[in-house]
Amino acid sequence: MERTAQVKRTPKKGALKRDDGWAWVMLLPNVIGFLMFMLIPMVATFVLSFMEYDMLSAPKFVGLQNYKDMIEDPITRQVTWNTIVYTILTVPVGMVLSLLLAVALDSINYLKRFFRGAYFLPSITSMVVISIVWQWIYNPEYGLMNFFLSFFGVSPKKWLTSSSTSLISLAIVGIWKRLGYDMVIFLSGLQGISTNYYEAAQLDGANKFQIFWHITIPLLRPTTFFVFVMAIIGSFQVFDQVQLMTQGGPGRSSSVLVHYLYQNAFQYFKMGYACALAYLLFAIVLVLTVINMRTEKKMRETF
């Protein structure tokens, strides 16, 4: 793996004179911040997940109760399910679109920067601004979405305010915002493919589609897999558009894991339970990251 390779590339012990003193002096501000705001809170959250704490009375040790509650809590089940549905709605569509756009962008000569900039614009924009514009687009009475779809004979929908479309509406915004980001990663993957492959295929008389299907797709597999895992990790942490556009509603129809975590911690003040939810999220991300690293390693060996 790249990480271990790079760690090894740093100078060997004894090759340079030790400079422990200077190292610690220079490292100190960073390490203090890292300990205070990262490492200690991480451990504290874990400890707190075995406690009951409402910020008013002292924390009480309850063992695995929070985790037991989590399994039995129908809301946790619903929000986890919603998170999975959101992932299924966003990841495959987003990946196909961003890959196609990356391939198209990679094969043109003019206006490349313009297109890349245009696709990237949503990725650099605050979700608050995006939610304002999209709430107007989704407005059932005068919004752009119903107007646009009316040309295709689609009947007007209530989008964000109906429990059957709220999650889909949020997913569309999610795809729209993330598209440029994934496209840029695909683009860098495409540029990493040696032109030799394409030339050889062209000599063999392959057409553009065959080249795409038999050369680009297989050689791009490490990038594709990476985008896939990153997109899943990202969609499991979705929060901003939910809080801003639907507050998880109507009912719980668009409430997701992080939204419920936020409510427990900062609205219901069930800190212990929120910490347990945080570790559920962490566990999911951890599993995905490990799968990603394993597969990446395997792919590096094959290619």
């Binding site: 890292f34 705001f37 990262m38 490492l39 200690i40 809170p41 991480m42 504290a44 959250t45 707190l48 910020m55 990790i233 942490q237 929060f239 992080v258 975590l261 936020y262 911690a265 900062f266 800190m271 929120a274 910490c275 945080a278 570790y279 999220l281 962490f282 991300v285 951890l286 990251t289």
Partner: peptide, 15 residues
Amino acid sequence: TMMVPFHVTVITNFL
């Protein structure tokens, strides 16, 4: 720690 979701630390950081 780079893969740790922000939400894991934010609760105890808030406290």
